[in-house]
Structures are given as structure tokens and as C-alpha cells.
């Protein structure tokens, strides 16, 4: 099967936070692409830069952050684009769902107004038409009593329902790409399962691509086609989900998977751990950023940063001493 044309292409993206005269790198030369119909998962711990990449794509970075490199959406450059060009796609063709559904909704507007507004603005629908479409969308994301919800305020809905509303809003204009940043982290585990099921179904129903950002390998496992692992602002490994779960090559990927506590199997008194902690983003690291915590590391790793290289089957790896294939 020929790979579909990429919907989003990111090349050499850097995000720096400026504090006074010093710049702290949050994202260091990240390149990736997502195709229509594909689900790409971005996995990393806090501070790995996973959210910053996509905040840069959406031009939602903090005021003191500077993005450089290239972000193209169907070939059109977004990073240097004027505001109007960005607004033409953002929120309609390219949408994003965040972790905290309460703070992403406007507290003093009814759900129906917040939903309809998207279609009035982006599609030029009348308010009446837009409300009808909003109602249909609430049913599509399986919200109970959709007519009543349209007239309710965000605080009257549960966390799971708010997240369904946000996903519904993001799907109203039939986006080509949905970016979901930790969409279930603030939700209970049974509600998390419902939201994942919803994303899975939405994906089958349309051709849109999905970027799923998470710290949890287990969560992305049921949805992702391809997974990118980030550490300290760089991609350390990228592979198909099947390949990554069966044979993680980067020692960090492997260690992170081992650290996830299991619900089955022989009970161990001690949890598997990864010693140390991620490097301080303000400190410049010459070698591999993971070397101080890596059990495979050699002297070379501390001096010479491994480049991200193709290792076949569409996979990429940045490591001098990978785990056995």
C-alpha cells in the first residue's frame, strides 16, 4: 500500500524558551510527518517537549517561546505564515484537544453556543443550522440527552462528558488532523476507556489523521499505528507500534516500558525503576541526553551524541548501543 501524502510535515523544529539573555531548548531539531488516516503517538515524560512541538504547530506557544524550522500542513508553511493563513486551517482542518477539558471550554457560554460558534465562524452557517449540526455531533460522540446538554454550561457536565464535547467541537469541521494532547489524563480509568473507544470509532468513520500525545505506552497501544519516543526534546526512537512493543531498540524506550506497573504476572515486591531523572533543560548536553541513566552507556555516549538514523522498516533510532533487534 502506497503511503498516503503527509498531512503534516515538521522539519528541524526547534522551540526555545527565552529568559532574559538565556535560551532554554525545549524541542531540539524534531522532524516528523503524519499522513491522513494514520494515528501517530508521541510518547515522552514531562519536559520531553512532546506538547511543545504541537503547541508550536498550532501557534499556541507561551509568549517567551520561539519556534524555528518548518511546519507544513498539506505543503503550506505554517510557522512563518501570517495569522490569517493560520486561522483558515486552525480549529477547522487542524484541531487540537487538550488534557483539561474544563479549562479548554469557556465557563460562561452554553455548550450549544460554543459548538455552534465553530461552524458559524469557519463554515459561515447560520446559528440555527450550526446548532442542528452541534446536536448531531453530540449524538455522534455519544453524549446522553444531547438536547439538554446544548443548553448546559461546562461546569454542569462531568469530566468525561466535557472531553466528549471538546472532541465533538474539534470534529465539527471534519478536520484532516486531530491533535489529542493527553486527552484522558484527567479522567478516571473507566471513562478513559470510553474516550479511547470514541477516538478509535471516529478514526474508522473518517479519513482524518490523529496525533496522540501521552506519557503512557499502555494508553497509545490500542490506537497508534506508529510511535515516536521523545527524550529531552529529541526523538530517540520511531517505529511502528507492533515493532516498538515487540522489540524496543532504544534503552530508554525499553526501560520506560519495563517501568509500567503490570496488573498480571508474578508479583514483584519492588517496582522496576529507571535511576536518576531527565536532564535539566537549561543544561547543554554534548553526548546522549539519556547516557547518565542508561545501563548500556559507554564513554562514547557521553561525548558524541548519536544521530537519529533509519534502521529499516520505516523505523528510526538514535543510539550507539541499542537493545538487540
Amino acid at each position: 500500500m502506497a503511503p498516503a501524502a503527509p498531512a503534516l510535515e515538521i522539519e528541524g523544529l526547534k522551540v526555545d524558551f527565552l529568559r532574559g539573555t538565556t535560551a532554554t531548548a525545549a524541542v531540539r531539531e524534531v522532524s516528523l510527518s503524519v499522513a491522513l488516516g494514520e494515528c501517530l503517538a508521541i510518547v515522552g515524560e514531562s519536559g520531553s517537549g512532546k506538547s511543545q512541538i504541537f503547541l508550536a504547530v498550532m501557534d499556541l506557544l507561551a509568549g517567551n517561546a520561539r519556534a524555528s524550522g518548518s511546519v507544513r500542513f498539506f505543503g503550506n508553511e505554517l510557522l512563518s505564515a501570517p495569522r490569517s493563513a493560520l486561522d483558515a486551517v486552525r480549529g477547522s482542518k487542524l484541531t487540537m484537544v487538550f488534557q483539561d477539558p474544563l479549562s479548554a471550554l469557556t465557563p460562561h457560554l452554553k455548550i450549544g453556543v460554543q459548538m455552534a460558534e465553530v461552524l458559524v465562524r469557519h463554515r459561515g452557517l447560520s446559528w440555527r443550522e450550526a446548532e442542528a449540526a452541534a446536536l448531531a455531533m453530540l449524538s455522534r460522540v455519544r453524549i446522553s440527552e444531547p438536547e439538554r446538554r446544548l443548553r448546559q454550561y461546562p461546569h454542569e457536565l462531568s469530566g468525561g462528558m466535557r472531553q466528549r464535547v471538546l472532541i465533538g467541537i474539534s470534529l465539527l469541521c471534519e478536520p484532516d488532523l486531530l491533535i489529542a494532547d493527553e486527552p484522558t489524563t484527567s479522567l478516571d480509568v473507566t471513562v478513559q476507556a470510553q474516550i479511547l473507544e470514541l477516538l478509535r470509532r471516529m478514526r474508522l468513520e473518517s479519513r482524518m489523521g490523529i496525533v496522540l500525545i501521552s506519557h503512557d505506552f499502555g494508553l497509545v497501544a490500542g490506537l497508534a499505528d506508529r510511535i515516536i519516543v521523545l527524550y529531552a526534546g529529541r526523538i530517540v526512537e520511531s517505529a511502528s507500534a507492533a515493532q516498538l512493543f515487540s522489540r524496543p531498540r532504544h534503552p530508554y524506550t525499553s526501560a520506560l516500558m519495563r517501568c509500567a506497573p503490570a496488573l498480571a504476572g508474578v508479583h514483584q515486591e519492588r517496582m522496576p525503576t529507571l535511576p536518576g531523572q531527565p536532564p535539566d533543560p537549561g543544561i547543554r548536553v554534548d553526548g546522549c541526553a539519556f547516557a547518565p541513566r542508561c545501563s548500556n552507556a559507554s564513554a562514547r555516549c557521553r561525548l558524541d551524541r548519536p544521530m537519529l538514523q533509519n534502521i529499516g522498516a520505516g523505523a528510526q533510532l538514535a543510539c550507539h548501543h541499542p537493545m538487540p533487534a
Partner: peptide, 9 residues
């Protein structure tokens, strides 16, 4: 409901 480390279950 806890997701398992199994791709595309």
C-alpha cells in the same frame, strides 16, 4: 479498563 501494553488490541 486499564490499558495493556499490547499494540492495537
Amino acid at each position: 479498563a486499564v490499558p495493556a501494553l499490547l499494540p492495537l488490541r
